[in-house]
Design a protein around this nucleic acid. Sequence first.
RNA 1: GGGGAGAUACCAAAGUGGCCAACUGGGGCAGACUGUAAAUCUGCUGGCUUACGCCUUCGUAGGUUCGAAUCCUGCUCUCCCCA
Length: 314
Amino acid sequence: MTQIPFFRLMNYQKERRDNLNLMSKKKLIIIIGPTAAGKTEYAVDLAIKLGSPVISCDSRQIYRELRIGTAPPTPEQLSAVKHYFIFSHSIHDLYTAGKYEVETLALLEDLFKTHDSLVMAGGSGLYVDAVCRGIDNFPPADIPLRETLMQRLKNDGLESLRMELRLLDRESYETIDISNPQRVVRALEVFFATGKTFSSFKNFKSKTRDFEIEKLFIEKPREELYARINRRVDLMMEQGLLEEVRTLYPYRERPALKTVGYRELFEYLDGKCSIEEAIDLIKRNTRRYAKRQMTWWRRDIGTVIDNPSVRNRP
RNA sequence: GGGGAGAUACCAAAGUGGCCAACUGGGGCAGACUGUAAAUCUGCUGGCUUACGCCUUCGUAGGUUCGAAUCCUGCUCUCCCCA
């Protein structure tokens, strides 16, 4: 068994568990934590021990075209235990947290027929939440509409879109982060696609799952984590990340390739920076990513999932 | 040995008598997050304080001045040019 310096057990659905009583004793164990903390290794070991497959919860490792830069499980790990959502989708198809929720719940239902405990592992906080508490029934992304809005953002500026949102959906204007162009665009997109306001789709209630959820948060001292990240990036380069990126260059605009490790090397291939600079940027951006992951889960610790106030910020 | 330039916060770099606890960038820290989430966005970054505010900072030791990161002098160090 791998040595994990620190990990914290979170009684995530403690209250729910009491209410569930005999309904089900099925349990989903989710290994979460920042990138490069050792989730994959830990999950594989645990899965073998429990006779469970590993269900990945990673928004980038699902893409079969991405083999090096996303630090997916090794071929040995993949053959040691059955994995789901690794290399299962293509960068050419738009994938989202909403789809992940649907596909994963279907899979879990199926797997729970033959397993009592299932191991899930991943670093994508929104995807983990989609499984644990669900995403409200928002309309799916409307890409052509979104592109139109992005074009408007570019031409007229954010303020113009904000003003429009203020007129069409005052509530969203006052509650979402209007300094974030992505959020403003999405709110408008939903309005134009459905004629209903973005805010009207929110219901602030977590969905109910008929299985127990336990989260294991793997953490490491910051210094050690950063050292591991640096080492891993160097290793990826040795494994041929640059070659991989080169073959993916034509698809660089795909959302799936807006990914740490790929973007920076696209810039290098454009001649915008040296290879050394690109590698340093990958390391820096991975550190920042890890920090964001920790921020995301920090709020989970000690919170109760049914409390709407956790999600309904002022 | 002679001449010149410079030493500013974690780093780089502006500031050249009061509007300076000090522009800006990097790095770092913290936060947000409902179908792009490895995305996108926000705040902080000398100390103490909830805040008003107070205290200590611009190589170092003095000096001039009501007032100095800014002017003067000594010292230390760095860089460049000539020997």
